[in-house]
Write a protein that binds this DNA or RNA. Sequence first.
DNA 1: AGAACCTTACCACGGCGATGTCAAGGTTCG
DNA 2: CGAACCTTGACATCGCCGTGGTAAGGTTCT
Lengths: 124, 124
Amino acid sequence: MNALTIQEAAQTTDWSPRMLRYIERAGLIEPQRSAAGYRLYGPAELQRLRTLRELVTRFDIGLGEIGFVQRLRGDEELAGAIDAWLQAQPRRPEHVPAAEWLRFEQDKHSKLLALAGAAATTNA
Amino acid sequence: MNALTIQEAAQTTDWSPRMLRYIERAGLIEPQRSAAGYRLYGPAELQRLRTLRELVTRFDIGLGEIGFVQRLRGDEELAGAIDAWLQAQPRRPEHVPAAEWLRFEQDKHSKLLALAGAAATTNA
DNA sequence: AGAACCTTACCACGGCGATGTCAAGGTTCG
DNA sequence: CGAACCTTGACATCGCCGTGGTAAGGTTCT
């Protein structure tokens, strides 16, 4: 009844059958299987697939990223280690105006890094 | 002053100068700059570089992954969206012999939930 | 001045992610 | 039975990641 085969599911979620299998392989959405091994996508899976698409396109992230976060939720040690590492971040030298730093942090194509450093140490 | 140039820093942290620049590009460790634009690695950065190496090799993750987690910490919306998505987890087979679909051995690292104690927000 | 080091920019190569397509073989259903 | 669909597996392309190297041009220090 409301369990679609891979092709049907693909059509209603705007993914390709290929990608549905890929997504499953990535451990993100694993549909049930029929006795013969056919993937069966229920309403929940379909909804999840659509949301996944939204997530990926809206934030421009890859399936790998999501899978990684998933991994983090199961590996307390990993999560802790990374978190600890990121924690030791605020290594901003006191004599440097934070404003300058924050400024170029959002500028991916900054080509004036040297300038910022110079301006910070002297009024050059 | 205890601030090393990129080459010196590379030697004491077992990275290559090339990678130090790459790491900076990835937004993970941004050393100060001298007035002329030279990168200056202080004790803190050196330590962080060593820890980073440890982190990466020990958990076999990429700089991108760490960078992503870093991004998550600054983008509440993204973090929330992914978390919400992961929360709406798996529908365990209700009356389907798991053996059936289990026989197609998936990957070796399929680690589905274990927690997910929260009720799905999606229509159940 | 000159050697040694730094900077950015660009080319290169192998690997992996994201996708497509095709092949060989099983399943469904009219 | 046969068409249509499914499954896994393998090959192929494209772009990004991790790295290295090199070129052209400043900086430092002796």
